[in-house]
Design a protein around this nucleic acid. Structure first.
Lengths: 203, 203
DNA sequence: AAATAATTTAACCAAACAGTCAAAGATATG
DNA sequence: CATATCTTTGACTGTTTGGTTAAATTATTT
């Protein structure tokens, strides 16, 4: 693959990512992506034969990037509380830099659930879970965390981090009326979310 | 307005709601809505001149329905803890019956933030907030809740309730692999979320 | 430098789309 | 029952869309 080709392909991929994330699969236009990349539509179809294939490539890359942020949580050298603090700090920081991703991602998955099946099969999510459980068995007992509570806790942690971005449109507008700056709120949230969850877990 | 006309208009409105919520503004087709209502496209345009006008009508109605669920929280006869329990029980129950609403709603707002501005102006959200603060001033002091924490707490409560629905596609798929039933999880969540938040608020 | 292969383009196509229109059917009004 | 008004339809239009094609340009190989 020549440098020129790689450059063009990369330019296309970046442009496609931008347009898809902003407009969604249905709202995105191939012409828009081509314009954005400074090429014409035929060349776009030359590199990625169809809109679907291009979208799939973009979507998979984004998913991979998002899930990668979860990996360090599996490091056995941290306590549960340290992991929670680490997760919120890192995950919210990542989303600050990619603030439209959650809304885009969640929506496209709900619109076509088949998409996530492939990704989850590849990421071995349940495996990941068993690792975590083994690492913190003692702590779970200390906190009185039973297996039935796991799904509740997992989704609560994800919710605390992702929701402000998924609902950014509403939240930002309400904050405006209350005189609160969304950016300040996010900075504050890294710590707040962690302590909130840790307190909730304690008896 | 004759009965026949009302019936047709209602049928159109219901069909439009279904199709818009399922496919989103961009993904929805006027032909689809017409088919769904058992009429032809010309009649659809006779009642609602454009797709945009039809969408606006549907969207406003949905928003009104969602925000109405927050109203009982303003009843002064409940303590803060009672309100939290009440909110999760009622709000999650509502979303169980309208499980696609959050994803649709959040996405369309992020896609076009101007939409929410109108609604929030009408709903007087900040007013609503001051009422709440006045009702629970003593309890806030007891919990050591400072004004800066309010936005964090508000969004956390919303997140706990709305996120499982907004991220339903992923959550349900992960649960499948873990052998957890989403419906059971939701039933459990009404109580879990309330106690989780209440514990988190306590020092 | 000639031949071959890869890249890029302008012009084009068929399908899908939101929206229109004239006229037919139904319903109410005098 | 005749006239006016409201409702519904089938057929149509102009535009936008994803995708194609054949030919031109550029890069690579021999």
């Amino acid at each position: 693959m020549s440098d020129q080709e790689k450059q063009t392909e990369e330019k296309i991929f970046e442009s496609a990512t931008e347009v898809f994330v902003e407009k969604g699969m249905d709202g995105a236009r191939m012409q828009d992506i081509a314009d954005h990349a400074g090429i014409n539509k035929a060349l776009l179809h030359y590199y990625y034969r169809t809109k679907d294939k291009l979208f799939d490539a973009v979507f998979e890359k984004i998913a991979e990037k998002m899930f990668r942020k979860f990996a360090p949580v599996l490091d056995a050298n941290y306590t549960l509380e340290e992991k929670i603090r680490f997760f919120f700090r890192e995950h919210i920081s990542f989303l600050q830099r990619n603030s439209r991703l959650p809304s885009f991602f969640l929506n496209e998955i709900n619109r076509n659930p088949e998409r996530i099946r492939k990704l989850i099969r590849k990421a071995d999510i349940d495996q990941l879970w068993h690792t975590l459980e083994a690492q913190h068995r003692d702590e779970f007992r200390k906190y009185n965390i039973t297996p039935e509570m796991i799904p509740q806790i997992m989704t609560s942690i994800a919710a605390m981090s992702v929701f402000p971005f998924a609902a950014r449109g509403i939240i930002e507008t309400v904050f405006e009326k209350m005189g609160v700056k969304f950016d300040d709120y996010l900075e504050q949230r890294k710590e707040f979310a962690a302590e909130f969850v840790i307190r909730a877990l304690k008896k």
